[in-house]
Simulated assay, not measured.
Amino acid sequence: MSTGDVMSQIDENTRHATKMAKKKAARDKIMAKKEGEKGLIIVHTGPGKGKSSSGFGMILRCIAHEMPCAVVQFIKGAWQTGERTLIEANFGDLCQFYAMGEGFTWETQDKERDIAAAAKGWEKAKELIRDPKIRMVLLDEINIALRYDYLDIDEVVAFLREEKPPMTHVVLTGRNAKEPLIEIADLVTEMTLVKHPFRSGIKGQKGVEF
Rank of each mutant, 00 (worst) to 15 (best):
E102F: 12
T168H: 08
R135F: 03
V43P: 07
G57S: 13
M31P: 00
L181C: 04
G57V: 02
K164Q: 11
R199Q: 11
I41H: 08
I202E: 14
R147N: 15
Y98T: 01
D154L: 05
K22L: 12
G204S: 15
L60I: 08
E35G: 14
D5C: 03
T85I: 06
N90Y: 08
F91D: 02
R84W: 14
L138W: 04
A21Y: 01
A125I: 08
C69W: 09
A17Y: 10
Q9M: 11
D28T: 05
I129F: 02
M20Y: 05
E107L: 12
D28V: 00
I63W: 11
K29Y: 07
I129W: 03
K38G: 00
K34N: 08
K51P: 09
T168K: 04
L181K: 08
E163H: 11
F56I: 10
D154T: 10
E83N: 08
P197Y: 06
A119N: 09
R161G: 00
Y148W: 10
A99N: 04
D131Y: 00
K23G: 01
E190M: 06
Q96D: 12
E163R: 05
K124M: 14
I184P: 03
M20T: 07
I30A: 13
E127A: 03
L86H: 01
G48C: 04
F210C: 01
R113N: 06
